[in-house]
Amino acid sequence: MTSRPSLFDPDSARAVFIGRLLLAVSVLLLWQLGAGHLFDIFFFGKPTLIAASIFNDLRDPGFYRDLGVTGMEFGMGYVIGGFAGIACGVLLARWRYMAKLADPFLQALNAVPRIALAPMLIVWFGIGMSSKVFLAATLVFFIMFFNTLSGIRSVSPALCSVAKIQGATQWQIFTKIMLPSASSWIFTGLKMSLPFALVGVILGEFMVSSVGLGYRLNAYATAYNTSAALGMIMIMMCLMMLLTWGANALDARLMGWRDGGGDGAAAALKA
């Protein structure tokens, strides 16, 4: 696209950044200028209108109450589901008989479409926060459960044998070999389940609620306020990206041992 192709280096960070900026601006521009001519504002909104409604939302104290409730449900669902999933994964990885016995039942439970639980959730938990927390937790639980189970099962038997020879007890092998070895699987599970937890919460809020970001979005959409609804979706998108970014940063920090880093080659020369 550049007028001087000889100066264009597709690998440089700058070229990538400029390319991205151009893409974003041209899409927004097309949307903005085409709104009312190419696309119907009623269905697709208009960037300036969406920006204005996001601005309105951010100034509304009610928005922060909704954000707080959704955040609370999300956090509780994530922590409860994650903790239960890891605990069950560890338990069944250690207890072979129980794992074999429970396997078809767990597969069956995981096969239940969560949305189908919706009417029952209201019967079981009422319309408060607990139904949303439960929905998020069931989604997170199975991801964490299966990841933890696979992680512990994929531990190298040689590492366990070496530790055993060096005098490790069964408990030491479990805490010092199996759990750390499975930690990268567990971490991957924790990252994967972030968006699922949010989906669970928003879904729960759609079904029945009087508070939360999902409720807010639903209210805008049922009032045919497209720009406000799209604005809400963008806010959710940004929140999710922020969470994922945070999780990636934490992962890189804690799991630094996985990738060799740049020192490998230099170290090899010194040997």
């Binding site: 630094g256 041992w257 996985r258 990738d259 060799g260 880093g261 020192d263 490998g264 170290a267 090899a268 010194k270 040997a271």
Partner: peptide
């Protein structure tokens, strides 16, 4: 250093 950062001999 982590093992992944060392040569085979090390």
């Amino acid at each position: 250093a982590y093992p992944s950062e060392l040569s085979g001999g090390m």
